[in-house]
Amino acid sequence: MSTNSVYKLHNLTQTYNDRTVLNIERLNIFAGEILAIVGPSGAGKSTLLRHLNFLERPASGSLKFEAFHLNGEGVPLNLRRKITTVFQNPVLLTRSVADNVAYGLKLRGKSGDQVKQIVDDALDLVGLNNLTHTGARTLSGGEAQRVALARALVIQPAVLLLDEPTANLDPYNVKLIENIITQVNREQGTTIVIVTHNIFQAKRLAHRTALLLEGRLVEIAETNTFFSNPSDSRTKAFIHGEMVY
């Protein structure tokens, strides 16, 4: 893990109907790290991920991705295509599971056997190779979430944003997904930001962990430090389950 920053956020804010839901004074995300973001619901975690994927325009502040400064204009396609998100509630297309997984590759102009091989491998990885030709809209919540992960993995993003990716899964599949996350991070050097409610998951996966409360970053630290020696009393309350939310 290097300490090169892929993202640099400064005074980044987001408002909905004049309400500030996100206000990040400073946040650097390092290349190749797994960063966990924890916090109660409504804290602004998903909103932060959308900013990292350039899916929202900040109300104010600056966001720098690699060498690119977000300004009023569009984000170059080649940069955008380095990042992808597995959403909290992924939306699958009314097509087969395989077609859903192949979608990102098709967008990038890939076709044929090459795509088929990548898709099959990805479905193997998430344990869904028996559902290749099933209509994606018939899947259960947990299956859909795994298809969404496979769909994100095939495009080999430089940055993978995961929004509560194991929320709908049984313990066996939670373990499976967590393994995939660590494996991808280790083998491909993928920078991963994972939003989770689950402090144990953060502990298991993340190099660093951050606590988001009411849109503000309360604390960000090495995961060990974050859990064993938090500097903010609210972090302490949160990790001891005393947070009222």
Partner: peptide
């Protein structure tokens, strides 16, 4: 309504 965001995130123009 979230489909567009999903597609953009997957790298669609």
């Amino acid at each position: 309504p979230h489909l567009r965001r999903q597609l953009m995130s997957l790298g669609a123009t």
